[in-house]
Amino acid sequence: MASKKNATDVDIQHIIGWILRVGVISSMLIVFIGGCLYLYRHGHEQVHYTDFVGVPGFVHSASGIINGILTWRGRAIIQAGIILLIATPVIRIIFSAVGFVLEKDWLYTGITLLVLAIILASALTGNAG
């Protein structure tokens, strides 16, 4: 029966809520800053989203994004913010796992790690298939 909510359960819920909020707010700030830079530099160019050609090379790899951030390229900064946003629920899962370990709930520690493994598998096989 899971009808009892003990102290750790409530603490973990608070931490999870906090992680989600901080993740969303900080990633949106980064996206906003990158967006301003992007508009300042490229605002008057023509758009081309009708045909699918993927994304520019410099936002398609980790090294490209890091280089882009160092040279203040708006789209690289936006993409970094988006990656942080995508990572937010994943970080949440890691903290859930820690919470279940503290509660000695091994069944749910396993379930949580399984979900994490599925997302990692998805990330690693993203280019295949």
């Binding site: 994304v55 995508i86 997302i119 990330a123 280019n127």
Partner: peptide, 13 residues
């Protein structure tokens, strides 16, 4: 999203 990111579906602009 991790799949889309690698496939270039997520355009920052």
């Amino acid at each position: 999203a991790v799949v889309y990111l690698q496939r270039g579906y997520i355009d920052p602009g």
